[in-house]
Design a protein around this nucleic acid. Structure first.
Lengths: 161, 161
DNA sequence: CGTGAAAGGGTTCACTC
DNA sequence: GAGTGAACCCTTTCACG
């Protein structure tokens, strides 16, 4: 889908505040409410906007620790990967999981309440993941940046090469 | 702040759909609209809900690549870290940055449009970060899970140890 | 593609229990 | 803390430019 300046302004405003009303949004981007509503509808239906979510403080839920876990599997057969990934999806503490190039096969971000909780997760979930031959945990001492996505502006102002 | 069952139901509903109306939310959690609105207000003001955001498709913005970058610095002096982190914050393509324990000092998640774009980011941003003595890039071949936070349910049903 | 108006529904008070 | 009702504002939709 092609996005023009107004679409980008809409996306940016909704990235900043997902619960902004259509009237405010229209005002912000310099459109009438109805025109803005139609564009928003298109952005949602085309999948540019995947959804909306509340950012909930991890601390408020008791999560004070973030672990970054590097994992290697015993092989790269499709079935091996599928079984591993299926198990990963069942663990609620695994927030992010990427299959990656390089030394390891997967990098995971794991949320834990404290060190004791992490030990439990490591014992009951991570160690139990199928086909794992190596697990390497490190801990986030401090989050510097935690964004959901790249700035909408940056996507268009950046040089092409 | 103490959260009861209804608060958790509210958080869960808003995690699923950040733009749900207060009336629907009230219906979902079995409360009158006014009572629900009051609780929501408290959750926002107390910081349990940090905000709301639209989930925008990275592909729609042209971002087809995710790099995971491991970085070591020349030292751990407060000033060294502060200068590095300040520079990190200026790069729009750095979506996530954690200071971590272990072999490296920082792990970054970097969004790039393609390999050429990543080369540019590496050259103009990553290589230019101060005090860096080692950079190790790997690429996400496939995202398996990409969540913002742990499930609200899991935060309360999980064993304490 | 944008505008304006009307109908239907949501939000938010003060008030009450 | 929770529910009720009313005023006000927002969203949606449709005809029109």
């Amino acid at each position: 889908m092609d996005l023009d300046d107004i679409d980008r302004a809409i996306l940016k405003a909704l990235q900043n505040n997902g619960r902004i009303t259509n009237a405010e949004l229209a005002e912000t981007v310099g459109l009438s409410p109805s025109a803005c509503s139609r564009r928003l509808d298109l952005l949602e239906k085309s999948g540019v906007i995947e959804g909306y979510t509340a950012r909930i403080s991890p601390e408020a839920l008791g999560y004070k620790m973030t672990a970054l876990v590097h994992i290697s599997l015993s092989g790269q057969f499709a079935r091996t990967l599928a079984e591993f990934e299926e198990a990963v999806r069942r663990c609620p503490n695994i927030i992010v999981c990427y299959m990656v190039s390089g030394q390891y096969d997967y990098i995971l971000r794991v949320a834990a309440k404290d060190l004791k909780d992490y030990e439990r997760i490591h014992r009951d979930w991570l160690s139990a993941l199928p086909h794992v031959v190596q697990i390497n945990s490190s801990f986030a001492l401090r989050p510097i940046i935690e964004r959901l996505n790249v700035d909408v502006d940056a996507a268009f102002t950046a040089p092409t090469a």
